[in-house]
């Protein structure tokens, strides 16, 4: 892959940015996430997560399975606030 390849499509983060951060010492997924916003967009890391984990693994010599991904939080897919509100009001009745 080219270094200028976008690997986080939600926040436009390139492979080069991730590699630079790893070199700077940000070697956990959460640290890279907090600086670049990788995994914070609409895909919630479903697209970029594995790519970042693989970069960390190859740079640090760890097994990819041993590297911690971000905490999975609700909702699984985007839900409109208005729908949640409507459902909430219906539950009150």
């Amino acid at each position: 892959m080219e270094d200028n390849t976008i690997i986080c499509r939600c926040s436009d983060v390139t492979l080069q940015q991730v590699r630079d951060l790893i070199k700077e010492g940000y070697v956990t997924y959460d640290e890279i996430k907090r600086i670049t916003r990788i995994g914070m967009g609409p895909c919630q890391g479903k697209t970029c997560g594995q790519l970042v984990l693989r970069e960390i693994a190859s740079a640090t010599g760890q097994n990819i399975a041993d590297i911690k991904f971000q905490t999975t939080r609700p909702p699984v897919v985007g839900v409109k606030l208005g729908l949640i509100a409507e459902e909430g009001r219906r539950n009150e009745e």
Binding site: R73, P74, P75, G78, K80, L81
Partner: peptide, 10 residues
């Protein structure tokens, strides 16, 4: 704002 989708809570 209620037309927007929630993508994450923490």
């Amino acid at each position: 704002i209620s037309k927007l989708r929630v993508v994450r809570q923490w």
